[in-house]
Design a protein around this nucleic acid. Sequence first.
DNA 1: CTCATTATCTGAGCGAGTAAGATAAATCTC
DNA 2: GAGATTTATCTTACTCGCTCAGATAATGAG
Lengths: 167, 167
Amino acid sequence: MPEPEPAAARLIDEILYLMPDMATATVRLNELVAARLGVSTTDLQCLHALAKSHGPLSAGELADRLSRTTGAVTRMIDRLEAAGYVERAADPNDRRRALVRVTERGETLPASYYDGMGRRATDLLSRFGDRELRAVLTFVAATRDDATTEATLLRDAPNPADRDRAR
Amino acid sequence: MPEPEPAAARLIDEILYLMPDMATATVRLNELVAARLGVSTTDLQCLHALAKSHGPLSAGELADRLSRTTGAVTRMIDRLEAAGYVERAADPNDRRRALVRVTERGETLPASYYDGMGRRATDLLSRFGDRELRAVLTFVAATRDDATTEATLLRDAPNPADRDRAR
DNA sequence: CTCATTATCTGAGCGAGTAAGATAAATCTC
DNA sequence: GAGATTTATCTTACTCGCTCAGATAATGAG
């Protein structure tokens, strides 16, 4: 690995210092948006997942993506349906499956809370050149991929903390 | 606002598309790390806050930073203390206050789960030039600040969803 | 048709949160 | 400096969302 210049090393340290802060701020914003919508944070993650999915997801797929049990997902769908954010329909090809489709309201209302941030991010990025934009994109993509990979490793590896409460 | 080049506009769109994914992956990783440590996600946020604070924080300061009630914080400290991650001590100058100090274990163990990501991020950033690093730093700082500002606005503005469950 | 499998739902119990009030220390007022 | 007020934390009662385990019902293989 090439040793970075001192100035570069300082910049890198600053970035690494800010990352957890950004994560914390993001988590908190999510909590508040969920409260605004009158749903839990998991419910909001569900709406995000559905908004990106292009088409309905089954209850089981949602349980998998959100890392929740099917029991939790059943009641999550109940809540979101009661609030008018999603609709439940039986899969015509497999009537055991519950297909969950986000409603207009469930797609538009959560997104509206992030409009301001999206606009300001666009303003900022518009002043960047091509090299800068590529750097940001590379960094964001790498961070997402790395967090995802790390999460998968943690999920699949046996958890030593479980030993304490094992029966 | 200067209209960005078409290629730049595409890069910006990609970045904006990835941001929620990065946030989601981060949230999930946090949940899993907390589970590994045998504590709740809020407890882990508390350890993060203490690790960055240089010195102990009072229960009230923690309640404020984590946006939790003092009652929730009391039990959070109980849990973290029982697990050996923090120590509670009375403030000698004001014996009402409970000063919370993170232990060696409470500082080191959570951080160890992020070592891998930190190293890989450093590797990636070491290949960036000065302009690229500044761009990433600016973007990360702006995102953190914007999320923080937005969260404060949401927190302080009256919540229309409360109307529904008003008595 | 029967049996094993798959997908979702239901019920019991638990952990972490809020709201409201109790407790105790600090501070203000005279 | 005694009494009243404020401040910081803790306690109690209750709520909500989660997991675990098991019920229900549709599918598919033989």
